[in-house]
Amino acid sequence: MSTRCSLFLWVLALAGLSLAFFAGCKPKQTMNAAADSVSKYAKEMGESAGKLGTKAGQSLGLVEKKWDYVRLAYGDGEVPAAVQGRYTVAEEREIGRALAIEWTAKFGCYTHEHLERYLNRIAAALAAYSDRPALPATLLVLDTEEYRWFGAPGGFVLVSLGALRAAESESEAAACVALALAHAQLRHALNLYERIAGGALAFEKGAPVEPIRFSAAAEETAALLVRNGHVAADVRSAAREATRLLVRLGYEPGGLKAFVERTKVRRQARHPILPADELAYCRTVEEAVAQRLEELHAPASGRTLVPRFRRECASCLPIPRSN
């Protein structure tokens, strides 16, 4: 056999090897039973090899992008991996409750069962389509005409009467809730709380080991967020995440931008010259929303649900108090 011939056979064999590999990657129902019996080591090796082979095949255009279609429409979330799993849901909610108590102590709590039920469903719907769907969302209405919204650890969302009054549709109310919820889900207040507390808190059987430190840090964190709000980077990432949630649920994609713009106009009607930090906040949100919408190739329109909003929310709001 000539050298050329043997070389040809080797090339043919390698081609066959590659084809066999790519063919093997194809999932089949009947194969599942057999796969179950393969040892763990073999599975791991096979998975790694399969991924490598599939990627190589995709890059060469030989293999269909097999599982690309299962990735979420509109991209992945921004939940930082470094802070995952530090607390259980119950522990995170304990910290969130302490912060919520602080804010309700400062602004008061507006209770209206019908209104709260409706807003809690909006918050739960947004949370259900977020990257932390197992984290329950709880919404409280703050009894103030100021434009305020806070997100506390454990999925607590606090929205003021003033902010709800600024919304003109369900999509705008959802935008406000989504922004606060994104802060809660991305653990912005929790990170601040830990910095103030001097590190992560230890819990034993769901209760903080140091209750005084637990309480004092909540007091300080809540006051700081009322006074200064979140840092620009946190505002930006929350606005991006909120936009993604709104788009995923099918609300009007520009709802957040419209809502923030409306609160700015209403503030300016009272105080023509707004403080620089408030203007910067609005600009940050608007820019983040515009950028995210472009990235997501979001549809031009979505559901505003004005009739449902008027029925469930606007009619339940109390007469505004004059300042």
Binding site: A20, A23, A35
Partner: peptide, 24 residues
């Protein structure tokens, strides 16, 4: 080698796991 690689790809394809990303 062909059989081993085929089996590896076969297992990889067959045992891919997917996760639900919504509440329900």
């Amino acid at each position: 080698a062909t059989l081993v690689v085929f089996a590896a790809g076969w297992v990889a394809g067959a045992t891919a796991t997917l996760y639900l990303r919504l509440r329900s």
